[in-house]
Design a protein around this nucleic acid. Structure first.
Lengths: 150, 150
DNA sequence: TTATTATTTTAGGTAAACCTAAAATGTATT
DNA sequence: AATACATTTTAGGTTTACCTAAAATAATAA
């Protein structure tokens, strides 16, 4: 398994390349809020691990392995963020917490999380139980209509 | 904020005291799978921070502050574990993942998580939508009966 | 009480991931 | 081409939280 730090760098590099085509030390430094000497140091390590291609004074690209990992971290991130949004966590907090939780979650949990998010997303209308949860959040009262059905 | 490590020690000490009345270096060492010299070292730090009362060669107890924190970590832990159980993560994985996620979660998220768990638990019968989620997990098919209602 | 065993602590490392200050390199301007 | 400015790297620290080996203390048994 890779460290949080490694995962963060790969994810950052991936995102930077997505939006501007290439990634340099300074971009990564800004994205992660880490000083450039630390970034340089890590880029060397990532290069040794065959996760990035690093050339002094140029920039970095991801190797296939690096990109595979970056993608998987990003997917985890998005899944967690969506789950948090479903349970009514604010956008900002959902984003911030996803950044941290993404490193701490087992494959099994990610699988279930993915299913759950898909389950909610695949509902043709906004699910009633989520309306009920919203209401529960406001009032603390559980709305129950199971009696209507039999 | 306290480090993961600090939170883990406090939680461990709390749990050990709960089940056997007192906590010693070796107990903590076994609980956390950390060698005793490391435990001794941390106990001194925790004592300096006024989170435990530590006496060489005796054991430790939690100060009021330490206990307050331990309780709050434990509560977070349980809430996360319950959430994971709700979305059908196995007991073992839910427990292991809760141990890690408990350190990474903001107050806002914990609040929503708590509400969500309470929402599910306060349902008078096992919620239909959870049956549907179970089914969705098995088959990948979304069961929808909103048309029956109007 | 003395010897043996278990526990705890001290002493002295290590590794990961940061940092600052200063040197090296690259880029842009006149 | 020379100077100025920005970026990147090197060199040398720091902190946190671990570790092992050996010494000190406590608990138990002969």
């Amino acid at each position: 398994m890779y460290s949080k730090s490694v995962e963060d760098y790969l994810e950052a590099i991936y995102n930077i390349i997505l939006r501007k085509g290439y990634a340099r030390t300074k971009d990564i430094s800004m994205e992660l809020n880490i000083r450039s000497p630390s970034v340089t140091e890590m880029l060397k390590k990532l290069d040794d691990m065959d996760l990035v291609n690093y050339e002094r004074y140029s920039g970095v690209t991801l190797t296939p392995r690096g990109e595979r990992i970056a993608r998987s971290v990003k997917t985890r991130h998005d899944t967690i963020r969506k789950l948090l949004r479903i349970i009514m966590v604010s956008d900002k907090t959902a984003e911030r917490d996803a950044c941290k939780i993404e490193h701490e979650i087992s494959p099994e949990t990610i699988e279930q999380l993915t299913k759950f998010v898909r389950f909610v997303e695949s509902a043709p209308i906004y699910p009633k139980w989520l309306e009920h949860f919203k209401e529960f959040c406001r009032t603390g009262e559980y709305i129950c209509d199971y009696r209507d059905k039999d």
